[in-house]
Amino acid sequence: MNLPPAAARTPTVRGCAVWYAPSDLTRLAEDRPAGAFDPADTSSFEALLIGAALTEAPERARAAGPVSRVTATAPPFLVPHGTADTIVPFAQGERLVRALRAAGGRVEFRPVEGWRPSVGGTAGGGRRALLLRDPRLRGPGGKGIIPASAVLSRPRGAMSHRAANLPQLLGEARRWFEDALFASMEAAGEQPVTTAQASVFAMLDAEGTTVSELARRIGVTRQTVHQAVHGLIGMGLLEQVPDPGSARRRLIRTTAEGQRVHERAQAVIALVESVLAERVGRAGVDAVRAALTADWGEPPLVEAP
């Protein structure tokens, strides 16, 4: 970005709401559980941001962290952060709050006990909407407090049947199963996972799989898989191990705890399928399975109407 000199810019930011964001890149490895984050990883989000692994460019990593840019003229901040966040550690929120307070800034810290970003939303399945109640954030005449809210999950519920074609219907069916699986696992006391994290589990080989191969199988970027994997490692469900076939690669595989959770999830899916059969008929479920497991051949090239 080509910004004018600081002296020529007019401050317009009246407040800032920071939802579980990294604040000090140089301390990420320290703040995450052992082995959950490799600062020498050149493909992490943080490395892509600064153009190098954090260990290769410590000054760039330091400059990229908000804590290094805090001043006494900072606008008021609202900093909500889940205490159980395994992707951006709770300690990162604490570091930002300490830096703002040390500089004399106004900050409201909102620890959310037991919460971590996931498809299930906040702990307990609800949604939270926070307001930064500071007069400087009000609109003209003191009206219009600016909300710092976020939609943390899409609503769970029955299939809408608004989808018009088969691919859309299949997508809705998958989301229906996922909603049932995630809600059932959380109700049973398991840690909530995101859709991306569940996809990683589904594509893992028993002996382990590389991040690149996982990304190819799921159809997403390596960075998306990295984020999902880092979260699962922090939860104790996955681990990184050396690849016997290459000294430069590492394999992602389940831990004993991860295998237990995966097997439990498979059992839940089987029960959900049984409930579906009771609702729509076993013959209908079997027909869907038969159609989906049949050989469809290569995707056809058709003439567009």
Rank of each mutant, 00 (worst) to 15 (best):
A8Y: 10
T10E: 15
T10K: 13
R14A: 04
W19S: 02
W19I: 12
Y20V: 11
D24K: 03
D24V: 00
R27C: 03
A29M: 07
E30N: 07
E30C: 02
D31R: 12
R32W: 07
R32P: 00
G35T: 11
P39T: 06
S44G: 06
G51R: 14
T55I: 10
T55E: 14
E56G: 07
A57E: 15
P58Q: 12
R60P: 05
A64T: 07
G65P: 01
V70P: 00
T71R: 11
T71H: 10
F77G: 01
V79Q: 02
P80S: 05
T83D: 08
F90G: 01
E94Q: 15
E94C: 04
R95Q: 13
R98V: 13
A99F: 02
L100S: 06
A103P: 08
E108W: 09
F109A: 03
R116E: 14
R116D: 08
S118N: 05
V119L: 14
G120P: 03
G121V: 13
A123T: 15
G125M: 11
L130A: 09
L131I: 12
L132W: 06
D134G: 04
P135W: 10
R138Q: 10
G141Q: 08
K143L: 10
G144I: 10
I146N: 05
I146K: 07
A150C: 11
L152S: 14
S153C: 06
S153I: 03
R154L: 14
S160E: 13
H161F: 14
A164Q: 08
A164L: 08
L166C: 01
P167I: 11
L170R: 09
G171L: 05
E172D: 13
E172A: 12
E178R: 13
E186W: 07
A187C: 05
P192I: 12
V193P: 00
A198I: 01
A198K: 06
S199C: 03
V200G: 02
F201E: 03
L204K: 01
L204I: 02
D205N: 13
E207T: 04
T210C: 00
V211Y: 02
S212D: 11
E213I: 08
V220C: 06
V220P: 03
R222W: 04
V225L: 01
V229Q: 00
G236C: 12
L238D: 02
L238F: 00
Q240I: 07
V241P: 07
V241T: 15
P244I: 08
G245S: 10
G245L: 12
G245K: 14
R248M: 12
R250S: 04
L251K: 03
I252V: 15
T254R: 15
R260W: 00
V261I: 08
H262S: 10
A267S: 00
V275E: 05
E278Q: 13
R279S: 09
G284V: 12
V285L: 08
V285M: 11
V285N: 02
D286L: 12
R289L: 11
A290M: 10
A290Y: 04
T293E: 13
D295G: 01
D295T: 11
G297T: 12
G297W: 10
G297A: 08
E298N: 11
E298K: 15
L301I: 15
V302S: 01
E303C: 03
E303Y: 00
